[in-house]
Design a protein around this nucleic acid. Structure first.
Length: 565
DNA sequence: TATCAAGGCCAG
DNA sequence: CTGGCCTTGATA
């Protein structure tokens, strides 16, 4: 296949024809550092890593990156390179030219996946809400390499990200795992009521209908014994999961000339957020402490990742779970679509987005290989408990990745912040949410963390008495801890849960005090979820009528915020 | 030997 | 500094 450019005959690579660079949208020239990218992003990434460049965003570290403006903010561009899956360890420390690298077989398998997927796309119409992709959205991460392999080239030195794993991390884990989610919340008592479902599982409500009524959906393929009740969608054969763990530029450790040694670095955490970990966790096989990386961030020249490091990641439970994540552009699509059709009012916009994403969540959950094995009651309980958290995780993820604009203009002309949408209209918490987005971005948050967040959110710990839920949670946490210092991420996850909870309370109060908002919003499923929670509260309140420590929730807060917004 | 993902070069 | 094109060299 050739193309004439001027007086030259260019050879096109047929596999990449028509592909767009996931970083800037330019034409893909091939696999570069683990990702199908354009030539310019390849060069930019290489220069950045090789020359240890440090950029600082002059805005809010949330700049849009596309072909026309990619030069404008190298900081956000590099962050997006990492977020989309470019791998620093593929830049050679010894600058040796030519040859193949350890990703060779990744690329090969990725190509096979892509071909398979393209074939599927031809034969399958995916259930996309409006069918249209919003302009400027990035292709899903099928540009990324996928597979596991052993090293095939022992001559080349790579910048590596050797993982740190200690008992300390596990201890942190256990502590987080076992601590009550909202233990520090002033709304603890309320949360005990509102967030612990189990009272009003109505088999005729719309949630149960959504969970069970589409068994004849042609996309569903019963794949479990009949005892499981629900069916499962056959998983797509391609990976969403192959996002390596990325480094923030400011986390770079210094180069070392001692290529013979493995130099371990603190993985993917900001200096500020990991101070408690630094001194206690990091010691390497060389006996070298990474304590120095706190005052002087280091980028090590690491030898090749060991077979165990690479394969273990790819074969981990969480990596498998990543494959089942919904299309990452889904929430972008929902926001864009709803923006065009919702009532010209910010709260309606936020609630309608929640409604659409909730429907997607139900569809996703019922086809999840773990969730679908739960009893119907437990499925509904989990969804009712977790949906606001999952919703917020989805929007947070898209925001951190740079897939969302900071604000969306609705038909009234008003600019609505994404945080407002994520928080179901709870304006008072938007700045807190913005801080979370910023922190995650600075921590090198990636798809792997998104996967952990989403599964931990859905498989909420309140149902940990169920062995399956417990198993899923433990496997996620275990697998996640093998590639991450998870404690600071879990801390943020708990903050997201808290925000989600407060937003649910906000919306519930709003539904009581400003019912006209619901008339505007046309969001029956969300309303049902909120009412179910409210019913629980009423039921619990009756149960505990002689328990004076349980205070009825105040109903003034939402009204105040709503009226003020 | 062809492929293709690395690094290098250099005009803009 | 950017990005298009060139060179290199291990692998299939």
């Amino acid at each position: 296949m050739t193309e004439v450019v001027g007086d030259r005959v260019m050879v096109l690579r047929p596999n990449h024809e028509g592909e767009l660079c996931p970083v800037c949208g330019d034409r893909v020239s091939g696999y570069h550092y683990g990702l199908l990218t354009c030539e310019s992003c390849k060069g930019f990434f290489k220069r950045t890593v090789q020359n240890k460049k440090q950029y600082q965003c002059s805005a809010e570290a949330n700049c849009h990156v596309d072909r026309t403006c990619r030069k404008r903010c190298p900081s956000c561009r590099f962050q997006k390179c990492l977020t989309m899956g470019m791998k620093m360890e593929a830049v050679r420390a010894d600058r040796m030219r030519g040859g193949r690298n350890k990703f060779g077989s990744f690329y090969k398998r990725d190509r096979a996946h892509r071909m398979q997927r393209n074939a599927m796309r031809i034969n399958t119409t995916l259930p996309v809400s409006n069918g249209q992709q919003p302009p400027g959205f990035y292709p899903p991460p099928d540009h990324q390499v996928s597979s596991s392999t052993t090293d095939q080239n022992s001559q080349i030195q790579y910048f590596d990200q050797t993982k740190v794993k200690t008992e300390y991390i596990k201890t942190e884990f256990d502590a987080h795992l076992q601590s009550p989610t909202l233990s520090s919340s002033t709304n603890q008592q309320l949360s005990d009521i509102i967030m612990r479902p189990g009272y009003f599982v109505d088999s005729h409500d719309s949630l149960s209908v959504l969970l069970g009524a589409t068994l004849d959906d042609p996309l569903l393929r019963p794949s479990f014994p009949s005892g499981y009740g629900l069916s499962e969608v056959k998983q797509e054969p391609f990976d969403y999961s192959e996002q390596f763990i990325h480094h923030q530029l400011h986390d770079y450790p210094t180069y070392t000339s001692n290529n013979a040694n493995y130099v371990t670095m603190m993985p993917m955490t900001t200096v500020a957020s990991t101070q408690s970990l630094v001194t206690s966790t990091v010691s390497t096989s060389t006996g070298r402490s990474a304590e120095t990386s706190r005052s002087s961030p280091l980028l090590p020249v690491c030898p090749l990742p060991t077979e165990k490091t690479v394969d273990h990641f790819y074969n981990s439970t969480l990596a498998e779970m990543c494959k089942s994540l919904p299309d990452e552009a889904q929430i972008v699509r929902i926001i864009t679509n709803v923006k065009g059709v919702c009532k010209p009012e910010p709260h309606s916009f936020a609630v309608n987005v929640a409604e659409e994403n909730l429907k997607e969540l139900v569809s996703w959950a019922k086809t999840n290989q773990y969730f679908s094995k739960l009893k119907m009651d437990d499925q509904m309980n989990l969804l009712q408990t977790s949906w606001t958290t999952v919703h917020m995780v989805d929007i947070t993820n898209a925001m951190v990745r740079g897939d969302l604009l900071p604000q969306y203009k609705i038909s009234s002309g008003e600019e609505v912040a994404v945080g407002f949408v994520a928080l179901l209209g709870n304006q008072a918490m938007v700045s807190t949410w913005n801080d979370i987005v910023l922190r995650l971005r600075n921590m090198g948050y990636n798809n792997y963390d998104y996967c952990a967040f989403r599964f931990l959110a859905l498989f909420d710990q309140y149902l940990e008495r169920d062995p399956l839920v417990s198993t899923v949670r433990n496997q996620v946490l275990q697998s996640w801890s093998e590639v991450r210092c998870t404690s600071s991420f879990i801390e943020i996850f708990e903050q997201i849960k808290r925000l989600a909870y407060e937003s649910q309370v906000y919306l519930w109060e709003l539904s009581n005090t400003c019912p006209q908002t619901w008339e505007q919003s046309n969001s029956s499923l969300v309303l049902e979820m909120i009412r179910t929670s409210a019913n629980r509260i009423m039921a619990r309140a009756q149960e505990l009528i002689h328990t004076p420590t349980i205070q009825p929730p105040q109903t003034t807060y939402a009204t105040t915020v709503y009226m003020a917004s």
